[in-house]
Design a protein around this nucleic acid. Structure first.
Lengths: 146, 146
DNA sequence: TAAGATTGATCCATCAATCTTT
DNA sequence: AAAGATTGATGGATCAATCTTA
């Protein structure tokens, strides 16, 4: 199973990465933009959890996206430690521009399975992922363990 | 599905990586050793296909493992372009030492699914992976496209 | 002390180019 | 030309340490 899971993931990932790259984005960057687009502005630490990247990585990612004017940072009024990321109008336009393309590309890659099968695979993988994630922490739980 | 697949993969991967690291190995390095252990000596280009890494990457990996005395390179008598990698006695001992641990660790991570479910998930993922892999080449087919 | 964020060092892996052999 | 292997440059991402605020 592990082998097959890895191969399937890499195969799909390469397509997803190609689709992202066609719009000048990394997969991780695309993840950040999508999170902000669908869920609205949120603290960096929350984005980090969504995108599954290290705390250093999120700073790096957001740096790049901010430099390109796709998002901006703001300080939280409630807690002066946290920085809240939100899409700029340009960023939102960019997401709207590539999202349909990206979704279509992914759908095409997945069309080897019927809708029922996709549902089943999703259910199975969700259980597998949950268990594996909450299992005795590999490196202390997260990639940021101290 | 894509999201769930990615999360499941990363969750399992982190456990696998931790298990490998416990024996001083990268996941990719572990893959090379396992391939050589189970399938015997083989050309570098074949190892590359098994481990799914770029051609430059395989050289890098094998360099490291050779430097640690876990495998050695030899020239093929049939074709003087190819280099054949084979485990040294130390390398074989090393694999024998960590393989049971590693297998057990993986089994534990997967125990969220019953055997039937594992079989089903494997079948579905295999189909998904196959289709995605042989689909219109993302970057020209492989990571080494010219 | 702990959480959020940032920095700088480091690492693994891809990429493009090159060399040899077929 | 094309396949196998190697090199050097580059980049994305983790990691450990640090700073600020709670």
């Amino acid at each position: 199973l592990w082998i097959v899971l890895a191969r399937a993931f890499r195969a799909v990932e390469s397509h997803a990465a190609a689709s992202a790259q066609a719009h000048g984005l990394t997969l991780a960057e695309l993840g950040v933009l999508e999170a902000l687009y669908h869920l609205g502005p949120m603290p960096l630490c929350e984005v980090q959890r969504k995108v599954l990247v290290s705390s250093g990585g999120i700073t790096y990612l957001v740096d790049g996206l901010e430099k390109r004017g796709l998002l901006r940072r703001a300080t939280s009024p409630r807690d002066r430690r946290v920085r809240i990321a939100s899409l700029t109008p340009e960023g939102e336009a960019h997401v709207r521009a590539f999202f349909p393309d990206h979704a279509r590309a992914l759908a095409r890659v997945m069309e080897g399975l019927s809708d029922d099968e996709k549902g089943e695979a999703t259910a199975l993988l969700r259980r597998l992922g949950r268990r594996a994630a909450e299992m005795d922490p590999p490196t202390g739980g997260e990639s940021d363990a101290r």
